[in-house]
Design a binder for these strands. Structure first.
Lengths: 229, 229
DNA sequence: GAATTGTAGATTGTCGACAATCTACAATTT
DNA sequence: AAATTGTAGATTGTCGACAATCTACAATTC
């Protein structure tokens, strides 16, 4: 017997909308109208409004008073902001990982990394990113800073969305990132903080480049200015 | 004529509750019951539920499904988690401040710092912390990373709450922090990132110590004060 | 024809009521 | 008396309806 942690209406609606947004079924800028959705899902607007607040926290939608909810746009600027912050926060995770990971945790990370190696040889980008998320979350488990964990977890749906967009466009970066992932994994074993943080930065920089391609804004050479949609 | 940015019912209720929690009028662990509050304020429960979501985001309340809202407790552990994260995030701010502050911004920061110096000579702890917040927010203004700004702003009410608790107990740390604030201000002028970040760390470590006293959990004896940059 | 104004319909904000279920306490058992 | 069970009242979750106001388009003006 397995027990559901929670399956409230708002939770279900949140999952439903999250999936729609990540998959691109709901597109950036698209309005989400409470009454329509309520009728479609056979619920009232109250749980939908609550779900929209959660999606706001995950930055999948934007809420404007008296104008309702729309799917958050994915600009290159936003992606850059996001990765800057992720780097700072994950630096804390890597430090704690290196300071505190026990043999069991290291074994688990090794196992995931090995699977990632297999997947990368097969060239399955989709599986590669799923496994990398798994690695990242397994690493996150060591931190005793629950506030940090929560903040990072809030970003996960948004990151999955970015990766989904990238994969749809056949944009991949296995080569550049796998090397850095190996280095991070080694740095945990040798307790080498500097190496770990450096590899993390390179890893995230590759991801950022990858993400910028995905949102149609390759890394700047000359300064191209933003324009109004 | 001045225009109100927003004065929706949820906003007003959020401000009302935020003030009550910061001032300690609502105490840690105390339940906030929707119907009672609704009657007291003469509104229905809908805007109150929305306000509670905002307070949740600011970490002033905890929401448990089917059990409602209670004022978030203030543990030493939580405060440590918080300052760890604030340091990482504000490091980004300091870096951008040093990289991008123009003469005008530097002048503004100088002016605030000068006021802080005056206040510290007068020994007014309350005014000292208010002015320090002002300095921190003026520094935050230079960042073009709106995501970062938003995340930091979410912490502000919680930090004000901690400071309020400390001041009620006559716990102060003007001496230790003013030195570091001066160093940060200098580092902006000399564009010295390392100096700025180092001073920021010391500043926040003093604040952390101060906060731990306030929540009745003085720093552990063996605790190291700084970690690797 | 372009810009402005007015209007109908659509959409969000708020409300009060009811359903689901949680909490505190009383009644019962050991 | 301590622990367990049962129950009444209190509290949160959800709903449908109405009020406020926003949006898109038609009518009007220049």
């Amino acid at each position: 017997m397995t027990f559901l942690v929670s399956d409230s209406l708002p939770d279900q609606i949140t999952r439903y909308l999250t999936e729609k947004i990540i998959s691109g079924d709901l597109r950036p800028g698209e309005r989400i109208m409470e009454a329509h959705l309520a009728e479609k899902l056979g619920v009232s607007r109250a749980p939908i409004r609550e779900a929209l607040q959660v999606l706001r926290k995950n930055r999948l939608v934007e809420l404007v008073p008296r104008q309702g909810a729309k799917v958050a746009p994915l600009s290159g600027q936003y992606v850059r902001w996001l990765y800057d912050i992720i780097f700072e926060l994950y630096t804390l995770v890597v430090r704690q990982l290196i300071a505190q990971a026990d043999r069991e945790r290291i074994g688990l990370l090794d196992a995931i990394l090995e699977r990632i190696e297999d997947i990368s040889r097969a060239g399955d980008e989709q599986a590669y990113y799923n496994a990398r998320f798994e690695y990242a979350l397994a690493a996150l488990e060591v931190t005793d800073n629950l506030l940090l964990k929560e903040m990072i977890m809030d970003f996960v749906p948004g990151l999955m969305r970015i990766h989904h967009v990238a994969l749809k466009q056949r944009v991949g970066n296995i080569g550049k990132t796998l090397v850095q992932l190996r280095k991070i994994n080694e740095s945990v074993k040798t307790r080498d903080v500097e190496k770990g943080v450096k590899a993390l930065r390179k890893l995230l920089n590759s991801d950022l480049e990858f993400a910028l391609h995905a949102v149609g804004e390759p890394p700047r050479r000359g300064a191209k200015k933003a324009r109004q949609p």
